[in-house]
Nucleic acid binder design. Structure first.
Lengths: 258, 258
DNA sequence: GTTCGTCTGTACGCGACCGCACAAAAATTA
DNA sequence: TAATTTTTGTGCGGTCGCGTACAGACGAAC
């Protein structure tokens, strides 16, 4: 079933890293290190949740799909979280399509394993609920942003949020892909990306966007970004890091390169 | 502190109604019946959560406020839920402003009372988490709707959602108020409302909107509404209604009049 | 009845984004 | 090298919603 080849802590995933040793040890035999290749759909919209994924430096989009085929990203998960939070909220189906936007590794565990540990009411219980709260806040802010801000501003915000969750400055993203996340025309993304490039914030070639000037991008993005970032930063500390002898330095070391 | 004048079940609030008798009895001494007058702000944005509110037929908006003062509603709570779900997700502040849009009564309990019962891990624990999931899904759908649909379509959806949560066909709402919920100009609401009135779906005079043709409104609204409605309907049944001798008929009787 | 404040109807120019469409450029394959 | 596919750049008319502004209409208070 599950291949117990999980690495020992320290973990790059902040939820796993924040588990006390005893709690982690219970989980460890069921953790499985896997690749999260670009474009992989972890759950289709309304799909059954068989596994929960703890990304390391992969970036995973939560996408709302409309009956007419239109898509918009409503949330975004990286090393700070876990996919399929619905699981612990009492539902075994993901309301969002979850798709890997930036590939990297991750750890997965079967849904029933997570549920069992969650129901113990220990650290994982509190950590996952705290993450659910963070996600709710994130989705709320994105809901407002979708209504109020321009494509250029939202593109800047989106690039920053992706950058926060991966290790490199070069993101493998086509305009087409981004347009589906922002819920706009592909041509709209091209125009916005040209503007950001003209300002010197980014540089891109076919399918690769490089962040050149992060502070500039931050200035340019809408006020949603600092709000989203603040919650993102609050997360690992806000949870009670019971610290089962974990090496926090390692986590810092893996922070985005900016 | 809390005045134990709570009515015995059956409750109009579905979460309280779904509690087994024993769980309810523990809570009962701390429940307090109160008025929720129109416009009352239960929590400001980022405000401390002192009480949790269980609406009966009041409708409460979760509003995201931007630093520049712009506002958009990102979610909406009625008799199916509880305000300040953040509480049980490990945070004692509400990320949203919560404001009473349609006045009616409600039950409130101090935050620490809810937390204590939640931590017992019984029915309230599961019911509230299930509701948190529903809220997450609602906010996600609204995030997409904000991006993809016209003011007219969203107004129709919004009226329907409000109507689902209150007992009467006449809603006390000004265009100005609605514009802040939809995140559009007041004049934009006027135009959209005129269109809906011309179709015969609604009728309104100063500060009062009457639903005249609900099926027509449903046809007109965007596809988000049926999705949101399905989750709304799923809620009370989806939770394990352990039914401590509660009178479910009473609840049905109080369902929206459509 | 008169006054006043609130709410609603309407107008106008403007910018953002849409749908559509096509060409150019870069990568991939033959 | 040539052919093909994918990705990006660009244009154009149309629509939606914005910001602003003002007038009319209704209801409450005096």
């Amino acid at each position: 079933m599950s291949i117990p080849q999980a690495p020992s802590p320290p973990h790059r995933n902040h939820i796993l890293a924040a588990l006390p040793q005893a709690d982690y040890d219970r989980l460890a035999p069921h953790l499985e290190q896997i690749e999260l290749p670009l474009g992989r759909i972890l759950y289709p919209a309304d799909g059954l949740i068989n596994y929960a994924y703890f990304p390391t430096h992969a970036m995973i989009s939560l996408v709302s799909q409309q009956p007419d085929g239109a898509t918009v990203e409503v949330g975004l998960t990286g090393f700070e979280g876990m996919t399929a939070i619905s699981l612990v909220l009492g539902v075994d189906r993901s309301p969002h399509q979850c798709i890997v936007q930036i590939n990297d590794g991750g750890i997965r565990a079967r849904a029933d394993v997570i549920m069992e540990e969650f129901k113990r009411g220990g650290a994982l219980h509190d950590l996952l609920l705290r993450y659910a709260q963070s996600l709710l806040q994130q989705v709320s802010q994105i809901a407002a942003c979708n209504r109020l801000h321009s494509v250029e501003e939202r593109l800047a915000r989106w690039l920053l949020m992706s950058h926060d969750r991966c290790i490199c400055d070069e993101l493998p993203l086509t305009h087409e892909f981004i347009s589906q996340m922002l819920g706009v025309r592909r041509a709209g993304v091209t125009t916005a990306a040209l503007a950001l490039q003209a300002e010197g914030f980014i540089h891109y070639t076919r399918g690769r966007i490089t962040i050149k000037d992060r502070p500039g991008l931050e200035d340019f993005a809408c006020a949603c970004y600092p709000i989203l970032k603040a919650e993102f930063d609050r997360l690992p500390a806000g949870t009670q890091n019971a610290g089962g002898g974990l090496d926090d330095r390692h986590i810092d070391e893996c922070a985005p390169t900016h």
